[in-house]
Amino acid sequence: MGLRSGNATAGALAMLVLAFGLILRIPAVVPAGIVLVGLGYAASLAVQNDALDARAPVVAAALFAAAELGYWSLELRDAVADEPGAYLRRLGLLAGLTLGSLALGQLLLALVDVSERSGIAIEAVGVVAAVAALAIVALASRRPAP
């Protein structure tokens, strides 16, 4: 009961932060809201047993869709008239990306499931993940060529 109420509080707080940021047009609140929900989910994982949570791909896809929708709503605040059909195309892309996220999550979980949970494999995945994260941050922060 305590875990559920904690998750609900985190979700409500994230929603408030997101709504506040969207009204005031602050893009930084989108990742802040996602992080809040993610922290709630991580806390729920911490009190669970060691079994893999099968809901993780769904949570990942939902968080990704929420982030995309948040940025989309920020972009819509710009007074730029879109040509007919633009929203449908965007919705299609968003649906595709969300479904892709779901599939990717399932694939990752399946990969982890078949490997040894407590062996060297999980450590290797973690190291690769950390290196990948650093590489992504470096790629993102590189300066464009003049």
Partner: peptide, 20 residues
């Protein structure tokens, strides 16, 4: 990804995967 490594929970890596 760092959270997954620290908490030893691959589910957090799954959360990070779509963004990455």
């Amino acid at each position: 990804l760092v959270g997954a490594l620290a908490a030893r929970r691959p589910e957090l890596a799954v959360l990070a995967a779509p963004f990455a």
